[in-house]
Amino acid sequence: MDDFRSGVERHRPYLLRYASLQLRDKDAAEDAVQETLLAALANESGFGGRSNLRTWLTGILKHKIIDHIRRSAREIALGADEETSDFDALFDSRGHWIEMPAAWSDPDASLAQQQFYAKLEECLARLPAKTARTFMMREHLGCETGEICKELGLTPTHCWVLLHRARMSLRECLQANWFGK
């Protein structure tokens, strides 16, 4: 039992980082991780040594994070910031690029650089709340669009618009602050 407890505890920093990336709120992330660890300790037999412990814990945490998102979805929905910003500014009236995206040379080499991730986090922090939440549910939690729509009360079309908007803002931000430098 004590081995299991210390094994679970050892993953706390990883889980905290995982939750923070999605929730963007230290207290909420702490809560989700705490609930996860308690649930894990209460259900050792659920683990049964059959999979990787961290993978198992992350699976529980994912549910706790989505619970939190569900509870707070109403407050976020009140924020009207999303509708004003638009990436229409990227294209002219005929739908052509105003500034054509340049190629990034060997972008995967950046994945080995710590500074790149700091920049990426800065770019993520600039996204409006609902856009960031939708994008991270898709790319970080790995939810399907259908699940995201259901939890956030969005239509699929709105969901795709938010995902597209997040991707375009992030690529622009990385172009300006990393790849274009």
């Binding site: 990336l21 995206p101 991730y117 990426l120 690529r171």
Partner: peptide, 22 residues
């Protein structure tokens, strides 16, 4: 279209980057 090809590749790259970020 080179511009859209670049944008499409970069959106796929973002997916890999977010995975690594975690």
């Amino acid at each position: 279209c080179k511009g859209c090809t670049n944008a499409a590749r970069q959106m796929e790259f973002l997916r890999r980057a977010i995975t690594r970020l975690g």
